[in-house]
Amino acid sequence: MSTNASTTTGTLTERYVHEVVRRVPAGARDEVAEELRTAIADTIEGARAADPASAEREALSDMGDPIRLAARYADQPLTLIGPDLFPAYRRLLKILLATVLPVVTAAVIGLDVLDGKHLGEVIESGIGTVVVLGSQMIAWPTAVFALVERSRYRARLTARSNRWTPDDLPDLPPQEKHGLAGAAFGAVGNALLLGLIVWQHSAKPYTAHGKQLEILDPALWSGWIWPVVAGLAALTVLNLARAAAGRWTMPLATGYAVAKALYALPLAWIFHHQTVFDQEFLTDFNRDWTTPDSFYTAVAVGLLAVAASSAVSRIRQAAK
């Protein structure tokens, strides 16, 4: 009689058991499945109902949501990102999606417009940038935070026996003069400068005697402009990383100093040798005035001084 009932009504129970055990750690699956099947069959039998199908439905309803039951069996977090990490996660996504994504998209659209692309192409690449870049910006932080959550849960389980004392409290984060806004500003500023350098090269915006000219010497593109461009890109990324980290850490500050050197040293060299501007542009722009040597020297020295002081200040913030 009971075997009869379980063969005719087996599928619903099997579906339920499957829903539970697939969320349980692999090692415990077979045993939990067997236990559940027995328990459900016992419950159906215990109901002594005339209609075994409705008794099965009743039994499964009493067992409740398979996800919750699995959580009780699994004894591990079923959340991807728990309450401890969620605020930082939300903040990072907010910065990325509300600040970085629009800036990059605007830059892409701007470059397309300057390249003289059609409206349709411009819209297409704008949407493409939002979708591709936006999904990357969501996917990677989520993956990293989920991994951190997992490892922290393991650590908590093993540390549960150790008594917590006030000594376990982390230090207060140091007070910073340049906060999140400063980092966002730095990222956008560097990205803009980078965009301008690329733009004046591709768009040749200056017109003299009916000829389209670049502002910077085109010869730079087979030489010294590359470390400058790479330095600016690195500075943009490092500012964003600082926004996510909440402060300048030593690796970030070191990277910042290297990137700043990568950008400022060649640029100062270019100014010092007065090979920065396109000669035709300069002649047309200056008319009957000549740029004094002291201008180049002053810019070169100023660049180095500003770069050195900002690198030192980042490292000092990190060391605090």
Binding site: A39, D42, T43, D62, G64, Y73
Partner: peptide, 24 residues
């Protein structure tokens, strides 16, 4: 075994659900 224990508990006036007892 699980189900019999559940019955005994409920009869003894200690109501408990299967979805609590079995994982416990």
């Amino acid at each position: 075994y699980g189900y019999a224990l559940l019955e005994t508990l409920n009869d003894a006036g200690i109501p408990v659900e299967g979805n609590t007892l079995y994982p416990l």
